[in-house]
């Protein structure tokens, strides 16, 4: 498991495609909650979590299943927690689910990469270039 996190449009997917030599076909977009077992990479994981929240599914249980059933997956998610906590309950719930899922993924991941200004920083695991 590899987790890639960063702000919106920070260059996460571009980085993953380039570094892990993936094509668009290798990357599952969050619009699908099916077929995640076989995906080399899932992007927009925060949107997938949002979808699960709306469907009253358990996002953490889903994340746990993903880790079990696709342990080599590269998961790309947006950092969405660096703002004011929203008044709207569903928005708070979504942020909490994203934060907790990211923590869970990071805990199990061998590598966590944070992208800022298109530049990767490895915040867990071995350096990229070693």
């Amino acid at each position: 498991m590899i987790l890639v996190i960063g702000g919106t449009c920070a260059g996460k997917t571009e980085f993953v495609k380039k570094y892990f030599r993936l094509s668009d076909a290798d990357i599952l977009d969050a619009s699908e909650t099916e077929n995640f077992q076989n995906a080399k990479c899932i992007r927009n994981y925060h949107i997938l979590i949002q979808k699960l929240c709306k469907e009253n599914a358990d996002p953490l249980a889903f994340t746990e299943r993903l880790i079990q059933e696709n342990p080599d997956c590269i998961v790309i998610t947006n950092e969405i927690g660096c703002g004011i906590i929203p008044l709207e309950k569903s928005e708070r719930f979504w942020r909490e689910a994203c934060g907790k899922s990211s923590c869970l993924l990071a805990e199990r991941a061998e590598k966590v990469i944070r992208i800022i200004c298109g530049i990767p920083a490895v915040i867990k695991g071995e350096c990229l270039w070693s």
């Binding site: 702000g7 919106t8 449009c9 920070a10 925060h46 947006n78 950092e79 969405i80 927690g81 660096c82 703002g83 004011i84 929203p86 928005e91 979504w94 942020r95 994203c98 800022i116």
Partner: peptide, 8 residues
């Protein structure tokens, strides 16, 4: 400035 990390 970083402006894209609040999920709004």
């Amino acid at each position: 400035n970083e402006v894209g990390m609040d999920g709004i």
